[in-house]
Design a protein around this nucleic acid. Structure first.
Length: 259
DNA sequence: ATGGTAGCGGTGCTA
């Protein structure tokens, strides 16, 4: 089973790119972030034509997450049950797979900048609630993939130029500690499990020629429960998509599970 | 170099 996560930065602006990529890669499940549209504005018919069921948790103008799946998703949860949130940043579902199931979630963690505003404590609070929810999901002891834009640079090795992120909400010690607490629950960073080398990035800013200079950061992750990690056969970053016409500033992250 | 670019929505916010 091929599961991908991708922050597409506006599904309506990105529709040609996303459809072309889906036709090429044909993932079984696609977790999307930053839809930037309400549920009724999501182009579900275009994906239905390609054989995908769509579950959205949208928001007009900002945020918004979705799960696309070849098999109809079940037990859909919109928003973290741990919080009463007015920002659409979480959707979860169970994906049936040949008599077995995989539980997936599409996550768009808050950016948190500027750090001297209310946005930074909001980010940390959200991560605390998300971690509590992940802890509860892990108790189910089932294959689980938590994919999304975590808006955290976990270590200096996850940035081409770590010095320029000093003080940024993505690289603050509090944010990095929150990510470690998440991993310490027993989750596996799938791409890191398959790639020991540095220079793995999932995001290149639109400004300053970041893509041209390969000035990237790794902030998009597929985090796996032990039951999913035991079935992991491949994990990769689809980097070349950043060089396509009218791209997102993020690229897809893919995992293959033997299920 | 305290900018730069993109999406949404129709101005300034968010990233």
């Amino acid at each position: 089973m091929l599961i991908a996560t991708w922050n597409i930065n506006g599904i309506r602006a990105r529709l040609p790119v996303v459809l072309a990529w889906v036709k090429d890669v044909r993932p079984d499940v696609l977790l999307l972030q930053e839809l930037k549209c309400a549920d009724e504005a999501f182009p579900a018919l275009e994906f239905a034509d390609l054989g995908y069921n769509v579950a959205t948790h949208g928001q007009k103008g900002f945020n918004g997450v979705a799960i696309l799946s070849k098999t109809p998703p079940e037990d859909i949860v919109r928003g973290l049950p741990e919080r009463d949130d007015d920002q659409a940043r979480y959707i979860e579902a169970v994906i049936p797979a040949g008599g077995k199931v995989v539980r997936v979630a599409s996550i768009y963690a808050p950016n948190g900048n500027p750090v001297d505003s209310e946005k930074f404590p909001y980010k940390l609070d959200w991560l605390t609630d998300f971690t509590a929810h992940a802890r509860a999901l892990l108790r189910l002891e089932e294959p689980l993939v938590l994919g999304g834009d975590y808006n955290i640079i976990p270590s200096p090795a996850d940035a081409a130029d770590p010095a320029k992120w000093e003080g940024d909400a993505l690289f603050r010690p509090e944010s990095r500690a929150a990510f470690r607490r998440l991993l310490n629950l027993g989750l596996v960073d799938a791409v890191r499990a398959f790639n020991a080398e540095d220079g793995l990035y999932t995001f290149w800013d639109y400004t300053g020629g970041a893509w041209r200079r390969n000035d990237g950061i790794r902030i998009d992750f597929a985090l796996l429960s032990p039951q999913a990690a035991d079935r992991l056969t491949q994990a990769r970053i689809d980097k070349q998509v950043r060089g396509w016409e009218k791209p997102s500033d993020h690229v897809p992250v893919l995992v293959t599970l033997d299920i």
